[in-house]
């Protein structure tokens, strides 16, 4: 089993299929969990981009003629996105990979790029932080309540409970109830008496 981060939503824009394939391969080989969408023109790309997207990888040629303008527009619609431009130009607010970068530099730059998430301001740590609702569910699970009971106690549907539990397990990478209980106790989410139920 391998460590799982919450998947990044990645947009890749380039005319060339080989180019997009190369970027996808690097992302895959680095073990980055990514939900990828591909675009072949800048217009199509700008029209679809939104704040759901966490990372954008752009080929410089795609917006060569009106580069700065396009990037300004991009940051207006998606100001929380991290942008990586592959090309030799200088683009403020973006990371870039230039033609003089060797293999190791490219890998390093990709890794750094995906370790960052502007939307949350910080790194993986925050991406994997439990939401308030998830914390509530985690406490109930650790106290030994079953899904049905948790649904009743928190006034949510049983399906919502199941979804929360799935997210909790993914974020913490702890699968068993006993493990979740230890986590809750270490972090003082519940008291030792609570877990005795």
């Amino acid at each position: 089993m391998q460590g799982k981060q919450k998947a990044s939503k990645v947009y890749i824009a380039s005319k060339q299929v080989l180019w997009r394939f190369g970027v996808k391969s690097v992302i895959h080989d680095l073990g980055i969990m990514a939900d990828i969408e591909e675009f072949t023109s800048i217009e199509e790309f700008i029209n679809s981009v939104n704040n759901d997207c966490t990372h954008i990888v752009l080929e410089e040629n795609l917006f060569k003629t009106n580069g700065k303008l396009m990037l300004d527009r991009l940051f207006q619609v998606a100001h929380t996105c991290n942008v990586l431009v592959i090309g030799d130009g200088d683009y403020p607010g973006c990371r870039s990979i230039s033609s003089s970068d060797g293999f190791n530099e490219v890998l390093n730059k990709f890794q750094e790029f995906f370790a960052e998430d502007k939307a949350n301001g910080e790194r993986y740590d925050d991406l994997n932080k439990l939401s308030d609702r998830e914390l509530e569910v985690l406490k109930e699970v650790s106290k030994g309540y079953a899904n049905k009971e948790i649904a009743d106690r928190l006034h949510i549907s049983i399906n919502t409970v199941i979804t929360h539990r799935k997210n909790i397990t993914e974020k913490l990478e702890i699968k068993t109830i006993a493990g979740l209980t230890v986590y809750a106790l270490i972090n003082n989410l519940i008291s030792p008496e609570d877990s005795q139920q």
């Binding site: 089993m1 702890i174 699968k175 068993t176 986590y183 972090n187």
Partner: peptide, 10 residues
């Protein structure tokens, strides 16, 4: 696995 991960991560 949980035991290992609890130690490693938390």
């Amino acid at each position: 696995f949980d035991l290992k991960n609890l130690i490693i991560k938390f």
